[in-house]
Write a protein that binds this DNA or RNA. Structure first.
Lengths: 154, 154
DNA sequence: GAAAAAAAATGAACTAGTTTAAGACTTTTA
DNA sequence: TAAAAGTCTTAAACTAGTTCATTTTTTTTC
Protein backbone atom coordinates (compact mmCIF):
# COMPACT_ATOMS: atom_id res chain seq x y z
CA UNK A 1 0.00 0.00 0.00
CA UNK A 2 1.19 3.50 -0.87
CA UNK A 3 0.28 6.94 0.48
CA UNK A 4 -2.24 8.39 -1.97
CA UNK A 5 -4.03 5.07 -2.53
CA UNK A 6 -7.63 4.68 -1.52
CA UNK A 7 -7.82 1.75 0.86
CA UNK A 8 -10.07 -0.92 -0.63
CA UNK A 9 -9.52 -3.64 1.98
CA UNK A 10 -8.82 -4.30 5.59
CA UNK A 11 -6.42 -7.20 5.90
CA UNK A 12 -6.18 -10.12 8.26
CA UNK A 13 -2.71 -11.63 8.36
CA UNK A 14 -2.50 -15.42 8.20
CA UNK A 15 1.27 -15.53 7.75
CA UNK A 16 4.18 -13.10 7.73
CA UNK A 17 5.02 -9.64 9.04
CA UNK A 18 4.22 -6.15 7.78
CA UNK A 19 5.11 -2.61 8.76
CA UNK A 20 2.76 0.36 8.55
CA UNK A 21 4.42 3.78 8.30
CA UNK A 22 4.13 7.40 7.23
CA UNK A 23 6.77 9.76 5.90
CA UNK A 24 7.18 13.03 7.78
CA UNK A 25 7.82 16.42 6.14
CA UNK A 26 11.53 15.60 5.90
CA UNK A 27 10.80 12.26 4.24
CA UNK A 28 11.82 10.29 7.32
CA UNK A 29 9.71 7.19 8.02
CA UNK A 30 7.68 6.87 11.22
CA UNK A 31 6.45 3.38 11.87
CA UNK A 32 3.06 3.25 13.48
CA UNK A 33 2.69 -0.51 13.80
CA UNK A 34 4.08 -3.91 13.02
CA UNK A 35 1.53 -6.57 12.19
CA UNK A 36 2.07 -10.34 12.31
CA UNK A 37 -0.13 -13.44 12.20
CA UNK A 38 -3.65 -12.98 13.58
CA UNK A 39 -3.47 -9.17 13.46
CA UNK A 40 -5.63 -6.89 11.35
CA UNK A 41 -3.94 -4.15 9.37
CA UNK A 42 -4.79 -1.45 6.84
CA UNK A 43 -5.83 2.18 7.15
CA UNK A 44 -9.22 2.16 8.77
CA UNK A 45 -9.70 5.90 8.19
CA UNK A 46 -9.19 5.64 4.45
CA UNK A 47 -11.16 2.39 4.35
CA UNK A 48 -14.15 4.06 5.99
CA UNK A 49 -14.08 7.44 4.26
CA UNK A 50 -12.67 6.50 0.83
CA UNK A 51 -10.17 9.32 1.17
CA UNK A 52 -6.56 8.66 0.12
CA UNK A 53 -4.36 7.19 2.83
CA UNK A 54 -1.20 8.77 4.24
CA UNK A 55 0.26 5.41 5.12
CA UNK A 56 2.56 2.95 3.44
CA UNK A 57 2.41 -0.76 4.18
CA UNK A 58 5.25 -3.11 3.27
CA UNK A 59 5.75 -6.77 4.04
CA UNK A 60 9.05 -7.37 5.85
CA UNK A 61 8.89 -11.06 4.91
CA UNK A 62 6.74 -13.23 2.59
CA UNK A 63 3.21 -12.89 3.89
CA UNK A 64 -0.33 -14.10 3.27
CA UNK A 65 -3.33 -11.88 3.88
CA UNK A 66 -7.09 -12.13 3.68
CA UNK A 67 -8.87 -8.93 2.64
CA UNK A 68 -12.40 -7.75 3.32
CA UNK A 69 -13.89 -5.04 1.09
CA UNK A 70 -15.92 -2.10 2.36
CA UNK A 71 -19.05 -3.51 0.69
CA UNK A 72 -18.67 -6.86 2.43
CA UNK A 73 -17.85 -5.20 5.72
CA UNK A 74 -21.08 -3.18 5.51
CA UNK A 75 -22.96 -6.31 4.46
CA UNK A 76 -21.73 -8.06 7.59
CA UNK A 77 -23.49 -5.51 9.81
CA UNK A 78 -26.60 -5.51 7.65
CA UNK A 79 -27.02 -9.27 7.58
CA UNK A 80 -25.90 -10.00 11.12
CA UNK A 81 -26.80 -7.02 13.34
CA UNK A 82 -25.20 -8.69 16.36
CA UNK A 83 -21.87 -7.79 14.83
CA UNK A 84 -22.60 -4.15 15.64
CA UNK A 85 -22.37 -4.99 19.33
CA UNK A 86 -19.33 -7.17 18.80
CA UNK A 87 -17.49 -4.43 16.93
CA UNK A 88 -18.70 -1.70 19.28
CA UNK A 89 -17.07 -3.54 22.16
CA UNK A 90 -14.00 -4.43 20.11
CA UNK A 91 -13.34 -0.82 19.10
CA UNK A 92 -14.04 0.37 22.62
CA UNK A 93 -11.45 -2.03 24.00
CA UNK A 94 -8.93 -1.08 21.33
CA UNK A 95 -9.44 2.57 22.16
CA UNK A 96 -8.93 1.92 25.86
CA UNK A 97 -5.73 -0.05 25.36
CA UNK A 98 -4.41 2.43 22.82
CA UNK A 99 -4.96 5.38 25.15
CA UNK A 100 -3.37 3.51 28.03
CA UNK A 101 -0.35 2.53 25.97
CA UNK A 102 0.31 5.98 24.61
CA UNK A 103 -0.13 7.71 27.98
CA UNK A 104 2.23 5.21 29.51
CA UNK A 105 4.85 5.58 26.78
CA UNK A 106 5.25 9.32 27.17
CA UNK A 107 6.96 9.00 30.56
CA UNK A 108 9.55 6.43 29.47
CA UNK A 109 13.06 6.88 28.08
CA UNK A 110 13.95 5.32 24.73
CA UNK A 111 15.78 2.51 26.53
CA UNK A 112 12.75 1.72 28.66
CA UNK A 113 10.50 1.73 25.61
CA UNK A 114 12.87 -0.69 23.87
CA UNK A 115 12.91 -3.09 26.82
CA UNK A 116 9.13 -2.92 27.06
CA UNK A 117 8.71 -3.66 23.36
CA UNK A 118 11.13 -6.56 23.57
CA UNK A 119 9.40 -8.19 26.54
CA UNK A 120 5.90 -7.50 25.24
CA UNK A 121 6.50 -8.63 21.66
CA UNK A 122 9.34 -11.17 21.76
CA UNK A 123 7.90 -12.77 18.61
CA UNK A 124 8.21 -9.54 16.64
CA UNK A 125 11.52 -8.08 17.80
CA UNK A 126 13.71 -10.57 15.91
CA UNK A 127 11.66 -10.40 12.69
CA UNK A 128 12.26 -6.70 12.00
CA UNK A 129 15.34 -4.58 11.40
CA UNK A 130 16.83 -2.41 14.11
CA UNK A 131 16.25 0.55 11.84
CA UNK A 132 12.52 -0.13 11.67
CA UNK A 133 12.36 -0.65 15.41
CA UNK A 134 14.06 2.73 15.85
CA UNK A 135 11.39 4.24 13.58
CA UNK A 136 8.71 2.73 15.78
CA UNK A 137 10.26 3.72 19.11
CA UNK A 138 10.83 7.22 17.78
CA UNK A 139 14.63 7.49 17.81
CA UNK A 140 17.47 7.40 15.27
CA UNK A 141 18.95 4.07 14.13
CA UNK A 142 22.30 5.14 15.59
CA UNK A 143 20.87 5.64 19.03
CA UNK A 144 18.93 2.39 18.73
CA UNK A 145 22.22 0.62 18.05
CA UNK A 146 23.77 2.16 21.17
CA UNK A 147 20.85 1.13 23.34
CA UNK A 148 20.95 -2.46 22.11
CA UNK A 149 24.70 -2.72 22.67
CA UNK A 150 24.26 -1.31 26.16
CA UNK A 151 21.31 -3.55 27.11
CA UNK A 152 22.98 -6.71 25.74
CA UNK A 153 26.22 -6.01 27.63
CA UNK A 154 24.37 -6.53 30.92
CA UNK B 1 -11.88 10.86 41.08
CA UNK B 2 -8.90 9.11 42.67
CA UNK B 3 -6.70 6.22 41.54
CA UNK B 4 -8.06 3.12 43.29
CA UNK B 5 -11.72 4.13 42.90
CA UNK B 6 -14.04 2.01 40.82
CA UNK B 7 -15.52 4.25 38.16
CA UNK B 8 -19.30 4.35 38.57
CA UNK B 9 -20.08 6.98 35.94
CA UNK B 10 -19.04 8.39 32.63
CA UNK B 11 -19.39 12.16 32.71
CA UNK B 12 -20.60 14.68 30.19
CA UNK B 13 -19.38 18.18 30.94
CA UNK B 14 -21.94 20.97 30.69
CA UNK B 15 -19.71 23.64 32.22
CA UNK B 16 -16.11 23.94 33.39
CA UNK B 17 -12.76 22.29 32.80
CA UNK B 18 -11.20 19.11 34.20
CA UNK B 19 -7.85 17.36 33.97
CA UNK B 20 -7.35 13.60 33.83
CA UNK B 21 -3.95 12.35 34.97
CA UNK B 22 -1.90 9.47 36.33
CA UNK B 23 1.08 9.50 38.66
CA UNK B 24 4.18 7.72 37.38
CA UNK B 25 6.50 5.58 39.53
CA UNK B 26 8.27 8.72 40.75
CA UNK B 27 4.97 10.34 41.70
CA UNK B 28 5.14 12.84 38.83
CA UNK B 29 1.78 13.63 37.19
CA UNK B 30 1.17 12.83 33.52
CA UNK B 31 -1.88 14.50 32.13
CA UNK B 32 -3.71 12.41 29.59
CA UNK B 33 -6.48 14.83 28.72
CA UNK B 34 -8.18 18.10 29.46
CA UNK B 35 -11.96 18.07 29.17
CA UNK B 36 -14.19 21.12 28.76
CA UNK B 37 -17.84 21.74 27.85
CA UNK B 38 -19.41 19.13 25.53
CA UNK B 39 -16.66 16.58 26.18
CA UNK B 40 -17.07 13.20 27.81
CA UNK B 41 -14.64 12.18 30.52
CA UNK B 42 -14.04 9.38 33.01
CA UNK B 43 -12.09 6.14 32.84
CA UNK B 44 -13.83 3.97 30.29
CA UNK B 45 -11.68 0.95 31.16
CA UNK B 46 -12.63 1.01 34.84
CA UNK B 47 -16.22 1.90 33.96
CA UNK B 48 -16.51 -1.16 31.71
CA UNK B 49 -14.60 -3.70 33.79
CA UNK B 50 -15.35 -2.50 37.35
CA UNK B 51 -11.64 -2.68 38.10
CA UNK B 52 -10.07 0.17 40.08
CA UNK B 53 -8.89 3.10 37.97
CA UNK B 54 -5.30 4.37 37.78
CA UNK B 55 -6.46 7.87 36.96
CA UNK B 56 -7.16 11.00 38.94
CA UNK B 57 -9.65 13.59 37.74
CA UNK B 58 -9.72 17.11 39.14
CA UNK B 59 -11.72 20.13 38.12
CA UNK B 60 -9.47 23.08 37.30
CA UNK B 61 -12.44 25.46 37.70
CA UNK B 62 -16.03 25.19 39.00
CA UNK B 63 -17.72 22.64 36.78
CA UNK B 64 -21.05 20.94 36.17
CA UNK B 65 -21.27 17.35 34.97
CA UNK B 66 -23.95 14.87 34.01
CA UNK B 67 -23.17 11.24 34.85
CA UNK B 68 -24.43 8.02 33.32
CA UNK B 69 -24.18 4.78 35.31
CA UNK B 70 -23.05 1.46 33.87
CA UNK B 71 -26.56 0.05 34.34
CA UNK B 72 -28.15 2.89 32.40
CA UNK B 73 -25.49 2.72 29.73
CA UNK B 74 -26.23 -0.99 29.23
CA UNK B 75 -29.94 -0.24 29.26
CA UNK B 76 -29.45 2.24 26.45
CA UNK B 77 -28.16 -0.50 24.14
CA UNK B 78 -30.80 -2.95 25.29
CA UNK B 79 -33.72 -0.62 24.76
CA UNK B 80 -32.48 1.12 21.63
CA UNK B 81 -30.34 -1.32 19.62
CA UNK B 82 -29.58 1.36 17.03
CA UNK B 83 -27.22 2.86 19.57
CA UNK B 84 -24.91 -0.12 19.04
CA UNK B 85 -24.28 1.09 15.52
CA UNK B 86 -23.99 4.70 16.63
CA UNK B 87 -21.40 3.84 19.29
CA UNK B 88 -19.60 1.35 17.05
CA UNK B 89 -18.99 4.15 14.57
CA UNK B 90 -18.23 6.67 17.32
CA UNK B 91 -15.55 4.47 18.90
CA UNK B 92 -14.14 3.59 15.52
CA UNK B 93 -13.75 7.28 14.68
CA UNK B 94 -12.24 8.04 18.08
CA UNK B 95 -9.75 5.24 17.59
CA UNK B 96 -8.79 6.51 14.15
CA UNK B 97 -8.25 10.07 15.33
CA UNK B 98 -6.40 8.94 18.43
CA UNK B 99 -4.00 6.77 16.43
CA UNK B 100 -3.44 9.56 13.94
CA UNK B 101 -2.76 12.11 16.65
CA UNK B 102 -0.30 9.98 18.58
CA UNK B 103 1.60 8.90 15.46
CA UNK B 104 1.84 12.50 14.38
CA UNK B 105 3.00 13.73 17.79
CA UNK B 106 6.02 11.45 17.99
CA UNK B 107 7.86 13.29 15.22
CA UNK B 108 7.43 16.77 16.72
CA UNK B 109 9.61 18.74 19.13
CA UNK B 110 8.12 20.02 22.39
CA UNK B 111 7.89 23.52 20.90
CA UNK B 112 5.96 22.23 17.88
CA UNK B 113 3.62 20.26 20.11
CA UNK B 114 2.96 23.39 22.17
CA UNK B 115 2.17 25.48 19.10
CA UNK B 116 -0.10 22.75 17.76
CA UNK B 117 -1.97 22.50 21.06
CA UNK B 118 -2.37 26.25 21.23
CA UNK B 119 -3.77 26.57 17.72
CA UNK B 120 -5.95 23.48 17.98
CA UNK B 121 -7.40 24.22 21.43
CA UNK B 122 -7.30 28.00 21.86
CA UNK B 123 -10.29 27.70 24.23
CA UNK B 124 -8.38 25.40 26.57
CA UNK B 125 -4.88 26.85 26.64
CA UNK B 126 -5.74 29.87 28.79
CA UNK B 127 -7.89 27.91 31.23
CA UNK B 128 -5.12 25.64 32.51
CA UNK B 129 -1.80 26.23 34.25
CA UNK B 130 1.49 26.08 32.39
CA UNK B 131 2.52 23.32 34.73
CA UNK B 132 -0.43 21.16 33.71
CA UNK B 133 0.19 21.90 30.05
CA UNK B 134 3.79 20.76 30.54
CA UNK B 135 2.44 17.54 32.07
CA UNK B 136 0.28 17.02 29.01
CA UNK B 137 2.95 17.84 26.44
CA UNK B 138 5.40 15.59 28.27
CA UNK B 139 8.07 18.06 29.41
CA UNK B 140 9.11 19.79 32.65
CA UNK B 141 7.40 23.00 33.78
CA UNK B 142 10.76 24.80 33.54
CA UNK B 143 11.17 23.89 29.90
CA UNK B 144 7.54 24.79 29.21
CA UNK B 145 8.22 28.23 30.64
CA UNK B 146 11.23 28.65 28.36
CA UNK B 147 9.27 27.62 25.29
CA UNK B 148 6.44 30.04 26.05
CA UNK B 149 8.87 32.91 26.60
CA UNK B 150 10.58 32.08 23.33
CA UNK B 151 7.37 31.72 21.29
CA UNK B 152 5.83 34.92 22.69
CA UNK B 153 8.97 36.96 21.95
CA UNK B 154 8.36 36.46 18.22
C1' DG C 1 -5.26 42.70 53.18
C1' DA C 2 -1.31 40.11 55.15
C1' DA C 3 0.61 35.63 55.17
C1' DA C 4 1.11 31.36 53.06
C1' DA C 5 1.13 28.51 49.19
C1' DA C 6 1.50 27.61 44.54
C1' DA C 7 3.00 28.88 39.90
C1' DA C 8 6.20 30.97 36.84
C1' DA C 9 10.83 32.69 35.45
C1' DT C 10 15.77 32.36 35.22
C1' DG C 11 20.22 30.34 34.99
C1' DA C 12 23.99 26.95 35.40
C1' DA C 13 25.34 22.23 35.08
C1' DC C 14 23.93 18.07 33.32
C1' DT C 15 21.96 13.93 30.34
C1' DA C 16 19.37 11.87 26.57
C1' DG C 17 19.10 11.79 22.04
C1' DT C 18 20.63 13.79 17.16
C1' DT C 19 23.68 14.68 13.43
C1' DT C 20 27.30 13.74 10.50
C1' DA C 21 30.71 10.92 8.81
C1' DA C 22 33.24 6.80 8.11
C1' DG C 23 34.14 1.87 8.15
C1' DA C 24 32.51 -3.11 8.83
C1' DC C 25 29.11 -6.44 8.04
C1' DT C 26 24.98 -8.56 5.54
C1' DT C 27 21.76 -9.15 2.15
C1' DT C 28 20.20 -8.65 -2.49
C1' DT C 29 20.82 -8.55 -7.33
C1' DA C 30 22.84 -9.39 -11.84
C1' DT D 1 30.27 -14.83 -7.11
C1' DA D 2 31.24 -10.02 -7.52
C1' DA D 3 29.23 -5.72 -7.11
C1' DA D 4 25.85 -2.93 -5.20
C1' DA D 5 22.84 -1.60 -1.77
C1' DG D 6 21.31 -1.63 2.59
C1' DT D 7 22.14 -2.29 7.68
C1' DC D 8 24.85 -1.91 11.81
C1' DT D 9 28.55 0.09 14.66
C1' DT D 10 31.42 3.64 16.49
C1' DA D 11 32.79 8.16 17.63
C1' DA D 12 32.95 13.23 18.00
C1' DA D 13 30.39 17.45 18.11
C1' DC D 14 26.04 19.16 18.83
C1' DT D 15 21.00 20.31 20.51
C1' DA D 16 16.78 19.47 23.04
C1' DG D 17 15.24 18.78 27.25
C1' DT D 18 16.21 17.84 32.53
C1' DT D 19 17.62 18.85 37.16
C1' DC D 20 18.45 21.65 40.85
C1' DA D 21 18.55 25.90 43.16
C1' DT D 22 16.94 30.63 43.69
C1' DT D 23 13.94 34.63 42.96
C1' DT D 24 9.71 36.83 41.37
C1' DT D 25 4.87 36.78 40.52
C1' DT D 26 0.26 35.18 41.14
C1' DT D 27 -3.32 32.91 43.63
C1' DT D 28 -5.39 31.21 47.74
C1' DT D 29 -6.58 31.39 52.50
C1' DC D 30 -7.67 33.24 56.94
Amino acid sequence: MQAGDITAYEYFITKGCLKVYTLDDDGAPHISMFAVEDYWTGDMASFMTKEPTRYFIKATEDSELLGISKANYELLFQEIPKFERFYRILYQKSLISYIRRSNHGISLTAEERYIEFKTKYPNIVNRITQKDLAGYIGITPEFMSKIITKVNRR
